[in-house]
Simulated assay, not measured.
Amino acid sequence: MTTPKTNGYCCELSVGEVAERSGVAVSTIHFYEAKGLIKGWRNPGNQRRYARDVLRRVAVIKIAQRTGIPLASIHEALTTLPEGRTPTATDWRKLSARWKAELDDRITRLTQLRDELSSCIGCGCLSIKDCPLRNPADELSAQGPGPRLLHPD
C-alpha cells in the first residue's frame, strides 16, 4: 500500500500516535485491526502505519461499543463506509440508524429486567417452574427438561 497524502503532506500515524490520540491502548489498535475494523500498512522499516481517518473510525468504534453494539455489528456497519476518507456526520447517521432497532430491543429487555428484578430470588432459574425473567409462564417446558434460554444471544 502506498503512503496516503493529503495536500502534499504526509498524514500517516504510528500505532502509538493512534493510541495516544484516540485514548485507547496500542493493544486495542492491534485488536481492532486484527478484527478488520481498521486498516493499516507497513512502511519500508516494517512499522505499522495508519491513515488519519483511522482516528474517526476508532471514535465510532468506541462510541458504538459504549452503547453495547457487538463488534460483529460494528464491523458490518464499517464495511459500508468508503475507504480512504474520514467518516462524516452523514456516515454516522447511517451507521447509527442501523443500530437503532438493536438498541431499542436491548433497552426493552433491560427495562423488563429492572422492573421484574424484585421478583427474582437469584436461584439461576433451575428450581423455579415460573420465572418472570427467564421463563415467563413456563414457556420453556415445551422444549424439554434442563435449562433453556429465551434470548440465546
Score class of each variant (00 low, 15 high):
1 M>A: 11
1 M>W: 10
1 M>Q: 09
4 P>M: 02
4 P>R: 06
7 N>F: 14
9 Y>R: 14
9 Y>L: 15
10 C>Q: 11
10 C>I: 09
10 C>W: 12
13 L>S: 03
13 L>F: 01
15 V>N: 02
16 G>D: 09
19 A>D: 06
21 R>P: 02
21 R>L: 05
23 G>E: 02
23 G>Y: 00
25 A>V: 09
25 A>F: 07
26 V>A: 03
26 V>R: 11
26 V>W: 00
31 F>D: 05
31 F>A: 13
31 F>L: 13
32 Y>S: 11
32 Y>D: 07
32 Y>N: 01
33 E>Y: 06
34 A>E: 15
35 K>T: 02
36 G>D: 07
37 L>F: 04
37 L>K: 00
40 G>W: 04
46 N>S: 15
46 N>G: 04
48 R>V: 01
49 R>N: 02
51 A>Y: 10
52 R>Q: 11
52 R>C: 09
52 R>D: 15
54 V>K: 03
54 V>G: 01
56 R>Q: 11
57 R>V: 12
57 R>C: 10
60 V>T: 10
61 I>Q: 00
61 I>P: 00
62 K>M: 11
62 K>Y: 00
63 I>M: 12
64 A>Q: 06
67 T>C: 11
68 G>L: 10
71 L>V: 14
71 L>K: 03
74 I>F: 10
74 I>N: 03
75 H>E: 07
77 A>N: 03
77 A>R: 05
78 L>R: 02
79 T>L: 12
80 T>R: 12
80 T>A: 15
81 L>V: 04
82 P>Y: 04
82 P>L: 09
84 G>H: 07
84 G>Y: 00
85 R>W: 02
88 T>R: 06
91 D>H: 05
94 K>V: 07
100 K>T: 13
105 D>T: 10
105 D>E: 13
106 R>V: 04
108 T>W: 06
109 R>V: 00
110 L>T: 11
110 L>N: 07
112 Q>G: 09
113 L>G: 08
113 L>N: 11
114 R>N: 09
114 R>I: 10
115 D>W: 00
118 S>E: 08
119 S>P: 00
119 S>T: 14
120 C>V: 12
124 G>P: 08
127 S>Q: 14
128 I>N: 05
129 K>C: 08
130 D>H: 13
130 D>C: 03
133 L>Y: 00
135 N>A: 04
136 P>F: 06
137 A>V: 01
137 A>T: 13
138 D>L: 03
139 E>N: 05
145 P>F: 07
148 R>W: 15
151 H>Q: 12
152 P>H: 04
153 D>Y: 10
